[in-house]
Amino acid sequence: MELILVRHGDVEAAPGLCIGCTDVALSATGFTAIQRLAAQWIGRVPRFLFSSDLRRAQQSAQVFAARFATEPLADPRLREVDLGEWDGRHWDEIARTDAARYRHWADNWVIQEAPGGESFADVVRRTGAWLSALLSSTNDDDVVLAIAHAGSIRALLCHALGLPPARAFALRIGHAQASAVVCRNGQFEVSYLNASRFEAM
């Protein structure tokens, strides 16, 4: 199975805003960037098109859905990390008004949940559950496209490649960028990461 992971386009939000599960929409430039990426698709039509159920991912998925004449399958397991009480606030404000909890979280983000939210380890577990279910329902020659977020894509790649979660930010995942892995005999290998166009296998 070839799994292609695309991060949604840029969003309508002020710089420095904490955006986890805050349900913001794509910006005009984000929509255009996704359109440009989708226009460069090469190879076979995906057997499945999955998406996070957050609006910015759904809007991005609809661009690909129009290209492939299919409907995206929304799955909350592909959501961005839930930042709980901090979601939708400015990071500067959080660091100033909730300094102790913010510092503790910043030093232990892999295993420490944001207040009322989840840890990165939680995201690895839920995206890993999605990936396991996907592997059980696909064939070796299937192509699967999933539209998700920087956090959930990093978590999926950590799970698939056996990377320590603490190394997740070594993986650059830009808006409207594509990454691909292939599973052969139960083992994943990287085809490309954070690319502005799709690459032939």
Rank of each mutant, 00 (worst) to 15 (best):
I94H: 04
A95T: 05
R96L: 08
D98M: 03
A100G: 10
A100Q: 12
R103F: 07
R103C: 10
H104M: 09
H104S: 11
A106I: 05
A106F: 04
D107K: 04
D107V: 03
D107W: 02
W109Q: 14
V110H: 02
I111T: 14
Q112E: 15
Q112V: 09
Q112K: 13
A114F: 10
G117F: 13
G117W: 03
E118Q: 11
E118Y: 08
E118P: 03
S119G: 08
S119T: 09
F120C: 10
A121N: 14
D122H: 10
D122T: 12
D122V: 08
D122Y: 03
V124E: 03
W130F: 07
S132R: 14
S132I: 05
L134S: 12
S136K: 12
D140Q: 14
D140I: 11
D140F: 09
D140W: 10
D141Y: 01
D141L: 02
D141C: 04
D141G: 01
D141H: 08
D142E: 07
V143T: 15
V143I: 15
V144T: 04
V144E: 01
L145T: 10
A146N: 11
I147C: 00
I147K: 00
A148K: 05
R154T: 12
L157H: 05
C158M: 00
A160P: 05
G162F: 04
G162L: 09
G162T: 14
L163R: 07
P165M: 12
P165E: 08
R167Q: 15
R167T: 14
A168N: 13
A170L: 13
I173P: 00
G174M: 02
G174Q: 04
G174P: 01
H175K: 09
H175L: 05
Q177V: 04
A178R: 07
V181C: 01
